[in-house]
Amino acid sequence: MKVGVLSDIHGNRVALEAVLADMPSVDRLVCAGDVVGYNPWHADCVDAMRGLLDGEDYWPDSEVPTVMGNHDRAVAGETPFAFNGMAQAGVEHAREQLDEAQLDWLAGLPDERLTCNDRVKLVHGHPEDPDHYTYPDEFGPDLLGEEDVLVMGHTHHQHHEVYDEGVVMNPGSVGQPRDGDHRAAYAVLDLDSMTVVDRRVEYDTTEVVHAVEDAGLPRKIGFRLTQGR
């Protein structure tokens, strides 16, 4: 089974379109959270993960197993997480844009979930703390439980490690990479061979920069996309 692994879309429909168009044939998609925030297309990205967004053949046609990120939780109104000005602006913009059904979907996301016949565990930050930034230097087989693969997001840093006990991975951020590479990030997991291919794809960051400004969001949100930080 091949699995397309997404995380930290952050309302960036342009990057998500590029990722889905670039992705090779997979049997399933999964998402490690933060569907919304920062960029202006929160509703489109939520509906894409709900399997409700009409469009090209590459859009998912059924709900994508997804966990709750800190921005998702903030938009749903249930978080004490401390946000900077850019992040808070994105949260407020998402709350204004999303309808009741979309907000209910976000609010119903779990902090963790098992998928792919319980072989893959999805969390956002860390198996024991959804808000903990688990950078690659903290990766290790001790993070794994009964699952074969642990998928984390939150850091926006793409990385994976393969151990005798299984795989620990972060696919990186679709919508706001912070690892010095501005290209949209995702990964393809092969559960038969227990291998991961980290992938990056170019997209039109200028379009997003203009959309950020048109939406009245902080200009720095768009500028960061061009820098991968």
Score class of each variant (00 low, 15 high):
residue 134 T to L: 15
residue 223 F to P: 03
residue 20 L to W: 00
residue 63 E to Y: 01
residue 88 Q to P: 03
residue 154 H to S: 14
residue 193 S to Q: 12
residue 138 E to F: 04
residue 191 L to W: 07
residue 44 D to G: 01
residue 183 R to S: 11
residue 56 E to P: 03
residue 197 V to N: 05
residue 57 D to F: 02
residue 120 V to H: 01
residue 94 A to T: 09
residue 85 G to E: 15
residue 200 R to D: 07
residue 153 G to E: 10
residue 122 L to K: 09
residue 214 D to Q: 13
residue 217 L to Q: 01
residue 127 P to H: 04
residue 102 Q to C: 14
residue 78 E to T: 14
residue 64 V to W: 03
residue 87 A to V: 03
residue 52 L to H: 02
residue 139 F to P: 04
residue 39 N to Q: 05
residue 165 E to H: 13
residue 7 S to E: 01
residue 20 L to G: 08
residue 203 Y to R: 12
residue 67 V to H: 02
residue 224 R to P: 00
residue 114 L to S: 13
residue 220 K to W: 05
residue 158 Q to V: 14
residue 216 G to N: 09
residue 218 P to C: 05
residue 223 F to E: 13
residue 27 D to E: 14
residue 193 S to N: 05
residue 203 Y to M: 11
residue 197 V to C: 08
residue 44 D to M: 06
residue 99 D to K: 14
residue 18 A to F: 00
residue 124 H to A: 14
residue 70 N to C: 09
residue 84 N to I: 08
residue 100 E to M: 14
residue 221 I to Q: 08
residue 116 C to I: 06
residue 179 D to R: 08
residue 180 G to N: 13
residue 162 V to E: 11
residue 20 L to E: 01
residue 158 Q to D: 12
residue 6 L to I: 10
residue 32 A to Q: 03
residue 92 E to Q: 14
residue 78 E to N: 11
residue 53 L to T: 02
residue 135 Y to M: 10
residue 27 D to N: 12
residue 89 A to K: 05
residue 202 E to Q: 12
residue 184 A to P: 04
residue 157 H to T: 11
residue 93 H to S: 08
residue 24 P to D: 13
residue 160 H to L: 12
residue 114 L to R: 14
residue 121 K to E: 01
residue 204 D to Y: 04
residue 206 T to M: 09
residue 213 E to G: 00
residue 81 F to G: 05
residue 12 N to E: 04
residue 113 R to V: 14
residue 163 Y to M: 02
residue 13 R to D: 08
residue 160 H to V: 09
residue 148 D to M: 07
residue 138 E to C: 02
residue 166 G to T: 10
residue 151 V to C: 02
residue 202 E to H: 11
residue 147 E to Q: 15
residue 39 N to P: 00
residue 171 P to D: 06
residue 138 E to A: 02
residue 175 G to F: 06
residue 228 G to L: 04
residue 195 T to G: 11
residue 116 C to Y: 04
residue 159 H to Q: 14
residue 77 G to E: 10
residue 187 A to Y: 07
residue 213 E to K: 03
residue 19 V to N: 08
residue 213 E to M: 00
residue 217 L to V: 03
residue 160 H to F: 15
residue 65 P to M: 09
residue 221 I to P: 05
residue 135 Y to D: 10
residue 117 N to I: 05
residue 91 V to E: 00
residue 153 G to R: 06
residue 197 V to S: 11
residue 17 E to Q: 12
residue 2 K to D: 06
residue 70 N to F: 04
